[in-house]
C-alpha cells in the first residue's frame, strides 16, 4: 500500500502557513511553542468563523491551505488524527455542565468539544460528503489516519483523500505530564492520491505503528520495504530533549544509522505533541521536493546532497512508536 502526497497545508510554530519551511524562528529554551496563526478571515467564511474555537480555526485553515496548494482539487474523503482533540473546549463544556447543574447547557461548547469536530467542520466547509473519520490513538493518531487513507486508496474506494494531524496545546494536560519537554501544537493537512500530481509529489511508501516494540523493529520494517539502511538519504527523528525519550534515538544513531546518513530532528522547531509527525511529514515532503532540509533541522549532515528517500521515526512517551517511509515519486 502506498499513496502520493500531492499537497500540504501546515500551521505550526514556524511560518509554515506561508509555505515558508526555512524554520528559522528561534525556539531555543521555550517551554511552549504556540502555532503562528494566519489571518483566518482570508481562509474561513466569517459566518462559520464566529462559532469556531481555536483548534477548529487551526484545522479548518490548514485544510484550506492544503486545498489552495493543491490548486483547488476537491477531496473525496477526510481523515483526521488527533491525540488530544478539542480538549480545551471539552474543559469549557464540562465547566458549563457543572456551573449550570446540567440545566440549560449552551450547544456551542458541546459541538466544539467533540473529537470529530475538526473533521466535521472541514467536511462542512469543503463540502466533503463521503467518508469522514477521526482517529484518536495518542501518539500514533496521525499515523493511524494515514494508514486508513492508504487502505482506502488501496481498495480504490476514493481517489483524493484529505488527511490531517492536529493537536492544540493544553495547559492542564501539560501540567499533568511528569516529564516536561518543550510542548508544541500544530495542524497539518495533506492531500493524498493514488496518482502523483506533479514533480513535487512525494510517495508515502509505508506507514507502520508499534506499541512497545522489541529491539529490531526498524531493521525489520526496512527489510520488509526492501530498503537497506544505506539507501536512506536521511532519518528524521522525533528527539524532544528529554534524556529518557532521546536515549532510544541515541541508541539508533549509534547502532543503526551509518555515519554517512544525515540525521534530521524537528521537535525543537514545532515542540512535542501527539501528532507532531504531521509536521515531520510536511518537512520531509518539502525537503524531498526542494532538494534539501532546512539547516536548523539538521542534527548531523551526511553525504547525499539531495534527500530522495527519508525515514521518519517518532515515539511518543516510549509507548507509541511509528515509522513513515517517504520518497521522491518515481523512484524505483
Amino acid at each position: 500500500m502506498h499513496a502520493y502526497l500531492n499537497a500540504a497545508g501546515l500551521i505550526s510554530p514556524q511560518r509554515t502557513f506561508e509555505n515558508d519551511f526555512s524554520c528559522t524562528l528561534n525556539t531555543q529554551g521555550a517551554a511552549i511553542l504556540p502555532a503562528i496563526e494566519p489571518d483566518y478571515k482570508g481562509l474561513i467564511n466569517p459566518v462559520q468563523l464566529r462559532r469556531m474555537s481555536r483548534i477548529l480555526k487551526l484545522g479548518t485553515a490548514a485544510a484550506q491551505l492544503c486545498i489552495n496548494n493543491a490548486g483547488g482539487r476537491q477531496p473525496d474523503a477526510i481523515i483526521v488524527g488527533t491525540g488530544l482533540a478539542c480538549v480545551n473546549d471539552l474543559e469549557v463544556f464540562l465547566k458549563s455542565v457543572i456551573e449550570t447543574d446540567e440545566q440549560g447547557v449552551s450547544s456551542i461548547p458541546f459541538i466544539n468539544s467533540l473529537h470529530n469536530t475538526v473533521a466535521a467542520q472541514v467536511a462542512r466547509t469543503l463540502k466533503i460528503q463521503s467518508y469522514n473519520n477521526t482517529h484518536c490513538h495518542r501518539g500514533a493518531s496521525f499515523e493511524n489516519a494515514l494508514l486508513d487513507a492508504l487502505m482506502l486508496l488501496h481498495e480504490k474506494e476514493h481517489r483524493q483523500i484529505l488527511v490531517g494531524g492536529i493537536d492544540e496545546f493544553s495547559r492542564h494536560y501539560y501540567n499533568l505530564l511528569t516529564t516536561k519537554v518543550t510542548s508544541g501544537e500544530g495542524a497539518g493537512f495533506f492531500l493524498l492520491s493514488d496518482l502523483p500530481a506533479g514533480e513535487n509529489s512525494v510517495k508515502i511508501s509505508a506507514v507502520r505503528t508499534f506499541y512497545a516494540p522489541g529491539e529490531d523493529f526498524i531493521p525489520r520494517f526496512l527489510a520488509e520495504q526492501h530498503t537497506p539502511v544505506h539507501h536512506l538519504d536521511a532519518a528524521l527523528l522525533g528527539m524532544n530533549g528529554a534524556p529518557g525519550d532521546d536515549a532510544l534515538y541515541r541508541r539508533l544513531i549509534d547502532c543503526l544509522f551509518p555515519p554517512g546518513t544525515p540525521l534530521i530532528t524537528y521537535k525543537h522547531l514545532c515542540g512535542e505533541y501527539p501528532t507532531s509527525s504531521a509536521f515531520a511529514l510536511a518537512l520531509a515532503a518539502r525537503a524531498i521536493a526542494a532538494g534539501a532540509f532546512p539547516p536548523p533541522a539538521i542534527l548531523r549532515p551526511g553525504k547525499p546532497a539531495t534527500p530522495h528517500k527519508v525515514l521518519i521515526y517518532n515515539h511518543y512517551q516510549n509507548c507509541n512508536h511509528t515509522l513513515i517511509l517517504v520518497e521522491k515519486a518515481g523512484l524505483m
Binding site: R51, G104, S106, S107, I108, I111
Partner: peptide, 9 residues
C-alpha cells in the same frame, strides 16, 4: 438553527 437554540436558552 444553532443560534435559535442559543436564543431559546
Amino acid at each position: 438553527s444553532i443560534d435559535a437554540l442559543e436564543l431559546i436558552l
